[in-house]
């Protein structure tokens, strides 16, 4: 019942190719999860994202979709795109191509305006979205006057104005510098923690993204090859993530190497303070028990 996304036997091929871009995907996503998707470029991550917000099948009409995607009770094939987009907000990689108005404020208003909401309601939603991503001071600015990180925050805000329960982000930090990426990921984490929005994010910077992730999906050749808690990544019975082109954060690589040498730890840390605490309290004792 509390599965907000249900995917059954999903397959999609674009009109240009017979080879399916994604196939055999079965997946349930619970409300409030923070899901990171990783994998090589071309593995089907972007296609998968477009299935979640209804761009597939509604925008990519030349393609062939099999199976079903249900988001918050709506079967994406049976409802028009504008209904689905009010459940699933989508943020794309390139900020310049998703900001279409000449000021931040009007960009955020774009969605609610399309819905034909009364002006007072639009105003409320715009203010709320500005607050949520902390960009109220930018409201009068034009998109090309902003840094990449700011642009991407505007893109998130303009999607939030449609009040979605799920936020899908397709490599939102790929074009950003580290400071911008940290800003954007912090905002996203906040939305998940405070607004209980379900987050599904494609991200290469695992050292940042995995700190907040409740679940990691790895895709390869159009299928899901890993679906579990990030901690399980380094367990022996699992194919190493490197095989699928997923770059392990150097912190995790360090712990893996230490474990290879006979040390054991009570848990695998994805953030620095925890890692330091574990090392200081467990490193010596682990060795003494193993000796």
């Amino acid at each position: 019942m509390d599965n907000i996304v249900q995917i059954r036997d999903l397959e999609f091929s674009y009109g240009t190719s017979r080879q399916p871009a994604i196939r055999e995907i079965d997946l349930d996503i619970k409300k409030g999860e923070y899901i990171v998707i990783a994998g090589l470029s071309g593995c089907g991550k972007s296609t998968f994202c477009r299935c979640l917000n209804g761009l597939i099948p509604h925008f990519y009409r030349a393609g062939v979709m099999k199976g079903s995607v249900t988001v918050d009770g709506l079967d994406t094939r049976e409802h028009p795109l504008y209904e689905i987009t009010q459940k699933v907000g989508m943020v794309f990689q390139d900020p310049e191509s998703q900001l279409m108005a000449l000021t931040v404020e009007r960009d955020i208003a774009f969605g609610p305006e399309n819905l034909g909401l009364p002006r007072e309601e639009i105003r409320i939603r715009v203010e709320e979205a500005l607050e949520l991503v902390k960009i109220a001071h930018l409201r009068e600015r034009a998109p090309h006057e902003l840094s990449g990180g700011e642009q991407q925050r505007v893109a998130i805000a303009s999607v939030l104005a449609l009040q979605p329960k799920i936020l899908v982000l397709d490599e939102p930090t790929a074009n950003l510098d580290p400071a911008g990426a940290v800003d954007v990921l912090n905002i996203i984490e906040n939305l998940q923690v405070q607004k209980k929005i379900t987050v599904i994010i494609v991200e290469h910077r695992l050292e940042l993204a995995l700190q907040s992730a409740t679940r990691l999906l790895i895709m390869h050749d159009g299928t899901l090859v890993f679906d579990d808690k990030p901690e399980r990544l380094i367990e022996k019975d699992i194919t190493p993530a490197e095989v699928y082109g997923v770059q392990m954060p150097s912190l995790i690589q360090l712990f893996t190497q230490l474990m290879d040498e006979g040390h054991s730890f009570s848990q695998i840390p994805f953030n620095i303070p925890l890692a330091a605490a574990i090392i200081l309290s467990e490193l010596g004792s682990a060795r003494s028990t193993s000796e």
Partner: peptide, 8 residues
Amino acid sequence: EAMDSKAW
């Protein structure tokens, strides 16, 4: 794509 994703 972005416009359609914002209920155009």
